[in-house]
Design a protein around this nucleic acid. Sequence first.
DNA 1: TTGAAAGCGCTAACAA
DNA 2: TTGTTAGCGCTTTCAA
Lengths: 344, 344
Amino acid sequence: MNFNQVTIKDIARELGISPSTVSRALKDHPDISPETKRLVNELAEKLNYQPNVVALSLRSSKTNTIGVIIPEIVHFFFSTIISGIEDVAYSAGYNIIITQSNESLAREKSDLKALFNSRVDGMLMSISRETVDFEHIENILSKGMPIVFFDRIYDTPGSSKVIVDDKVGAKEATLHLIEQGCKRIAHLEGPPNLHISKQRLEGYREALSEAGLPFDESLVALCPKGTTEEGKLATEKLLSLKTKPDAIFASNDPAAMGAMQAIRQAGLKIPKDIAIVGFSNWQLSSLMEPPLSSVDQPGYEMGQEAARILIRHIELKSKKKPEPAPEVKLLKTRLIVRESSVKK
Amino acid sequence: MNFNQVTIKDIARELGISPSTVSRALKDHPDISPETKRLVNELAEKLNYQPNVVALSLRSSKTNTIGVIIPEIVHFFFSTIISGIEDVAYSAGYNIIITQSNESLAREKSDLKALFNSRVDGMLMSISRETVDFEHIENILSKGMPIVFFDRIYDTPGSSKVIVDDKVGAKEATLHLIEQGCKRIAHLEGPPNLHISKQRLEGYREALSEAGLPFDESLVALCPKGTTEEGKLATEKLLSLKTKPDAIFASNDPAAMGAMQAIRQAGLKIPKDIAIVGFSNWQLSSLMEPPLSSVDQPGYEMGQEAARILIRHIELKSKKKPEPAPEVKLLKTRLIVRESSVKK
DNA sequence: TTGAAAGCGCTAACAA
DNA sequence: TTGTTAGCGCTTTCAA
């Protein structure tokens, strides 16, 4: 769009000097006389000169733009990540272009291509649920595009990634319940095709084993879709066991919410009869009744960290430094203890 | 960043023709012979030629990019809006650059400037809470930048805007309660400095008056910050009135959540003793216990509509058509009826 | 200390 | 039907 912005030429013409001199004066080149610098800078100020970044990009082959591919924007965790990315990028002078794949592989492919064609300097990417082959990503990587993966990563040795340590988070949550005196801790397991579900189950097992408690198969209930309804049903089953559980560690907040409903309807009290801890959505868990103890995922940090790593790669690359080694960052979760798991 | 992409020159050299011929052949110019076109297109395909959009932007003074300024990304309503914007922009071949002001005027100003300098073709903007003077916006508008405001608008006659009809939404919610047989409907009023709070109160009054019910000052309780705690406290007061309300219309979901807590703690049943309707966050309200009836804000539609209007403006402008008349779009809310307000 | 010229990749008016 | 040239705005090498 043509907004009739002032150019270097305009300044040069007005001052009766050449564009190259203006260019040099503006960037404080040592060759230029102080007097000329003063004149140029004053006029630039007066005319409100702003360099044309498009021209700069063309010349330098650098757009100062980062492309982001995310499965879904409308999701607390992902929007938190975007916020983290935005903050770091902003401070470093980068724009971010956002695309959402809507969990579709086709859309992810076209986003990837569009961002590549927009000549972004690097990309941050979390893959869609449909993504099972990675040719489209390999293709872009092979052209030298720096990509940092986060959360839903493409697990290839050559690239950097930022993930959350779900196993340790789950372990801490379970240990917290054990510290409260719980002996029969049930686990509502999340969608089994997701890596994170396995990690959370694993953390739960490790905690039990570390505390010398038995692992009881009948206390693990699958919630394949992670919905409230499933959580409720699964909990109803658990409550009908001969020896009821005295605590529940839920793999996700909706399931935890369902569990709460079932517990309430059975006439039991939280946390007196059954303590409960959820996983992942700070916003929701604070609003539950009673407020839900929860393993908080560090979305903001994840966005920040991914952006930092990417920008580091970009800047090294543009300085033609040796290829930086891929970095893998494992972020800690934070256990937020609220009423639902504190036995008095 | 230099990804050694194939250029028109490369194709020209390989084929022993001139770059301009290649350029023309690629865009199916009538002057070029079918044979040349075939050769060019085949080679372009083979070499995977992709036009350099930065060069195109420089030449055409058009970046095919829309800038978005939003107060906060991590907010269900706003992220829904972004999603709507993204979908429309994507279909029309535009990228979106997102910035968040974090409710800070200083940040809003610098975002505005950065986007302008990035030569975006137009902007979509929702102003920050701190924004009370509009010089920075006027400044950009005066340069001819198309801006469409949404939700938190800058109410100037010359520009297009998309807003939600909060008054009608509130009225419908209140009428719904009246239809359920409620006679003493309380209102939890939101932050009084926000335009929307006034609109919602107004809709509530209109509904009462239309139904021939009296407006009772003592049934309106202010929740100045819109928190759960305030909602709880306000409701406790309402429940201590000599004649209790039989329904509550809450100006926002956290307040509604607080009201539910207070009602439950007083040993009353929802909706048997008191029915309740909230405003605005679909995601939260579906998870409440019982699921909360709610006036849903059309965030996705808002994003779509704003993007559509902006793109229309941009395309008219680039065709040097006469300045399009500003459009004002008033979006309808949707009343989602759930258990909390249905009296059997 | 400054200027002329070339070039980043592309398109379009003009020439042939 | 195709090629030459100029130019979008900027930087930088080379020359003065």
